[in-house]
Structures are given as C-alpha cells and as structure tokens.
Nucleic acid binder design. Structure first.
Lengths: 196, 196
DNA sequence: CGCGTTTTTCACCATGTGATGAATTATGGG
DNA sequence: CCCATAATTCATCACATGGTGAAAAACGCG
C-alpha cells in the first residue's frame, strides 16, 4: 500500500483496532514502561499521532488495550453456585480457563506485568482482591473470607505468574487437569480447611 | 555543608555507599524503570556523573545495589540438613526470615519488582529456580524435584509478593509463625505429598 | 457537487534519560 | 612541598519519549 503524504487512507481500514492489537501484544511482551507509543504505532503501521488521536494518553491506551471483554465475577459465579465443597478445584479451573482463552491472554499478561509497578500495584491489592475475590468468599459462606481469600490470592497469583508470565517449566506446559489436581487441594484448604 | 563549585569534597565522605543506599531505596520503591540515575544522585546528595563514575551504567548500578550479602543456598542448607520431613515449614520459615532481615529487605524488594520485567525475568526462571531451589530438592532426596520444586516456587513467589511487595492484608502483617503454619503444609505437600 | 467531518501524516515541542569529558578540589606519599 | 591520583561537579551530548497542532486526503450526506 502506498501511503499518501498526509490525510485519510482510502477504504475502511480499521486502524483503531490495529493499534489496539499492537498495543496488547507489546504491553504483554514488554510491559508498560518497555512499550513506547511509537513502537505501538510502528507495529500497527500508522503514525504515532494517530495513537494519541484515538486514545489520548499512553495511560488511556493502556486502559483501553487491557480492557477485558468479560467480567471475572461472572466466571467465578460458577464456582459459587455449587457451594464450598470442591470450590478449590473449580476456582483453579476457572482461572486457568480464563487465562487459556486466546482473546484474553494478551490483555491479561499485560495486566500481570503491571502488578509490581508501584503506580499500578493497587489494582491488585485494592482492586482484584477486595472487589473480585472477597465477594466470592462471602458468597461461598466460608469462615473468615477476609483472611482466607488473600491466601487463595497468594497461591493463584503464584500459579498464574509462574505459568503464563514467567513460564517456569513444567508448570507452563502441564495440562490444566494436572494443575487442577495439584492446586485444587491447596486452594480448598485455604478456603475451608484448617489453617494451623 | 557548602559544596564547592567542583572537585573533591573535604574529609572522607563515603559517597559511594550513600549512592548505593539511595539506589536500593529507590529501586525498591519505584522499580528499575521508575528510577533514574539523577533521582538516585539527588537522593544521595551528589551529581549524577558520580554515579557513572563509581558504577558505570544504570544496569551495573542495579546489579551492585541488589547484590545480596548472603548466599540463599547457605540459608536453605538448614532446611536440607534435617531431611524431607518438616521441610515445608522450615523452608517457609527460612524465606520469611531472609525477607525479614532489615539488611536484605530493600535489595530483595528491588529484585522482586524486576521479576516481571521481560529483560529480567530469566533471573528467576533460569536462575533462582534451577540454581537455588532445584538443588534443595535434590539434596532433600525428594521424588521428582524437577516437577515439585517449581510448584514450591509458585507458592513461595505468591507468598513473598503478596506479603512484601503488594502488601495484601492480612498476609502483610501476620506473624511469621502464623504464615509458617498456613503455608508449611502446602509446601510440604508440594515437596513430598500426593500431587493428585 | 460541495462541504463538514473524520482520518491520517508531517513537523515540531518540551522534557527527560543515560552517558561522556574536562575542570577543579582534596588527599597522601615521596 | 610537590605531584599524581582520586573524587566531584559542571557542561554538554545524542537520543528517546509523550504529546500538540496544522495540513491534507477520503468519505458521505444534503
């Protein structure tokens, strides 16, 4: 395609979607700090000013790129519906299936890379844990959800990071069923089992 | 103190140590990307060129700042010496005590913040797990250390991040003994217990 | 067809970053 | 005391970044 010196491209190229795709890939691969707007633009085949046009600031691009098309609470509702028995395995299975969804993987990896960034770490501590996980514990009717759900988080975070971000073998490539069998009992104990 | 326009300061100020301290604090608080050499210099009360003088590049400063005065393998030797029974609790206790050491906290937090940085993530996947953890599994004589030690890592990483970096309550403030009681059985099962 | 709007690039800005080299000051040994 | 060396700052560089505004091209509606 021959680009004009300026101005609108002919046809209906969805450059906005192209930018989002490029952003998701780069944020996942390189993290927020390691990804420049120019890199996103180059990867999308557009000029960097167009990124600003569509998304405003880099922060706004990040938010748009990492927007999940599903609400994790809906997926976790499947866990709650059947009560606390066996909830450990069901939770692990839900987390794995969410992460194994091709449409969600890049945004989720991009999000994961940002959790240790001081400016973003409250996303997890003050967002995900209280707003997503705690209500699950409450809905399950478990004892002390305020204590137990963070324990669940500590294992789930470790599992997700080692499998999908850090790619530590063999965790990275074990079948989901194996991981459910391994981690289900851990999560179950954190939910309902004895803690000492 | 009135600084001269240029030149050596009188006396024996250990500006090199001051720079290292400032670097440790800032890398721990803001991560590598969020910490500039000028910020380190300002915090140490010196000119940024002095940071280059003593440490060379920013990468070299990072390596120097995060150098641990202890070899974690020595601390983990205490775990190994008593064999696989009870090794779960001993491991959790060692990790907590290492992290609770005031001299080690800042370098460790700085390191932790870098584990999800794509350029550094191999430190953990190809460094810590095979070089530090795997030999512990081998020395303990457990079955399948190549599979089990990464599982241990997944929980230890989750615990350390939620307690010391993300500061998720109540994990962040529970006494170490409570955490040993909670996480010891998990690590023990990953070491020697049934995985399915 | 003309025009307003949308899309897109070019040109540029301010600021910050990691890094370099020269000038200056202090120190200690001969 | 002198001088070589080490420590320190100033001045500067090349480059990169997020961001802005104007000019140009395409589109679709009246």
């Amino acid at each position: 395609m021959t680009s004009p010196r300026r101005g609108r491209r002919p046809g209906a190229p969805d450059t906005r979607a192209g930018i989002l795709t490029a952003a998701r890939e780069l944020f996942a691969a390189q993290g927020f700090a390691g990804t420049s707007i120019r890199a996103v633009a180059a990867s999308a085949g557009v000029d960097a000013a167009l990124v600003h046009h569509y998304f405003g600031s880099k922060d706004d691009l990040f938010v748009a790129a990492l927007e999940l098309p599903v609400d994790p609470r809906e997926r976790l509702a499947e866990v709650v519906a059947l009560g606390p028995d066996g909830a450990g395995e069901r939770m692990v299975r839900v987390f794995l299936s969410v992460w194994d969804d091709p449409d969600l993987r890049l945004p989720l990896v991009g999000l994961a890379r940002s959790i240790l960034d001081p400016s973003s770490q409250r996303l997890l501590r003050d967002g995900f844990v209280p707003a997503v996980l705690q209500p699950v514990g409450v809905a399950l009717g478990i004892d002390r959800p305020d204590v137990r759900m963070p324990l669940v988080a500590s294992q789930v975070i470790g599992l997700i990071l080692t499998r999908y971000v850090l790619e530590v073998e063999p965790i990275a490539s074990l079948p989901a069923d194996d991981l459910v069998a391994i981690y289900g009992p851990t999560v179950q104990r954190y939910l309902t089992g004895p803690l000492s």
